[in-house]
Write a protein that binds this DNA or RNA. Structure first.
Lengths: 212, 212
DNA sequence: CGCCAAGTTGAAATACATCAATCGGAGTGG
DNA sequence: CCACTCCGATTGATGTATTTCAACTTGGCG
């Protein structure tokens, strides 16, 4: 296991002073997650989860068993602020998308941290706002009735972040479909359609988005 | 205009000491909003908006002109944290749903407040997390492909808050449809269907939800 | 009383889901 | 190095739920 501070690599903490980071480091539990293993479920919400390496999948299950991908956590991302103040986890799951390493901080301890380091609260606030912005974007995606627009909007958002002409989809098409709230079949068909219309150029998971 | 502190009535500030509230009160601009008037648009995001009285509508416009209702603000609610840290407002609008009174705090001043009163940051964080939870719920609603489930889930959520057998829809059916991402026609039909199935009992905007 | 917006109802079109079969590539083992 | 397998991706055919368009009714308010 790397001796590097887990705390140091995440945006949530990396602006704090080094000695403060060491203090926090002592509070976290390290843990390995196997691919496919479920870490968080409505039964068990351990605490604040920070991804050190690997990828995790945050998803919901409907009553009929269908799955909806809420977000993919990459290294440095965190999840769990929803339950910081006692909120109940109703139908959110987190599982390993690949073998991963995570850090966990119990809620009461994290709360104590928030009280002690006012900077941390502002930092978490800032990150929460960003997350909210993303959720809002996703909302607007899901609200679009035209699937085609939905896909294009998603791609444009991706491109905006990469600042480059070519985009590499961050997930399997299957999961992207779940993320966008459609079926894999429809996604596949629509991508073809978009290509025929000259809006995109695709090879595998790499997509080139033409300006219009 | 009431002499009561605008700041005192909102959850965001009402836990602060009274003298702190007075300090903040001096920073806010009071403003009346006529029904239908647009207060916030991508062009102009004035600052943090707090609803003193009346109702405002937060909504998005798609490229094709269709509208999606994100949230309805009642008195005591606020909006604008998304742009606190310089985030761009891309397609969010806020307009008066009825004649309303609002308070506005410029972002830089609000930011200064956050630095000064660490309690405020935690408070805003807490409220942001609640808002996020609602957004997450709405996400899960929109992700359901069965409209019927979507409506029932929404109603159950409403009932949960009212703690009573009968629910009164907080908006016009037309707007509820926009909120749920469907057309008013479909909503009307589905409500009928649900009534025939014995799941609900409705008269106007009042709905009784039968346990199953 | 009459107007306008909201709500309702009907008929038609369409886009998406669903089911099922096939293809393709990556990984595994002989 | 070549089958073999497994899973993701693709393609086709079919059904259906929802949108759309349009006409009509209702209800609230001046």
């Amino acid at each position: 296991m790397s001796s590097k501070l887990c705390v140091g690599i995440v945006p949530l903490f990396n602006e704090l002073a080094h000695d403060e980071q060491e203090l926090i480091e002592r509070l976290v539990q390290h843990r390995s997650v196997a691919c496919g293993e479920v870490v968080v479920s409505p039964d068990r919400s351990g605490g604040m989860i920070i991804v050190r390496s690997g990828r995790l999948r945050v998803y919901q299950l409907s009553e009929d068993g269908s799955e909806h991908v809420v977000r993919i956590l990459d290294s440095g991302d965190y999840e769990g602020e929803l339950w910081l103040y006692g909120g109940r986890n109703e139908n959110l799951f987190i599982s390993g998308e690949s073998d991963s390493e995570i850090c966990v901080i119990a809620y009461d301890e994290f709360n104590r941290l928030l009280e002690s380091y006012s900077g941390l609260a502002i930092r978490l606030l800032k990150l929460s706002i960003e997350k909210m912005s993303e959720l809002g974007f996703k909302n607007s995606l899901l609200a679009m009735d035209s699937i085609e627009d939905r896909i294009v909007a998603y791609l444009e958002k991706l491109q905006e972040r990469h600042h480059s002409g070519k985009i590499v989809l961050p997930m399997k098409l299957k999961d992207l479909a779940l993320y966008l709230g459609i079926t894999p079949e429809t996604l596949s068909r629509k991508l073809h359609l978009l290509e025929e219309e000259g809006i995109i150029r695709r090879r595998g998971r790499t997509i080139e988005l033409n300006e219009r």
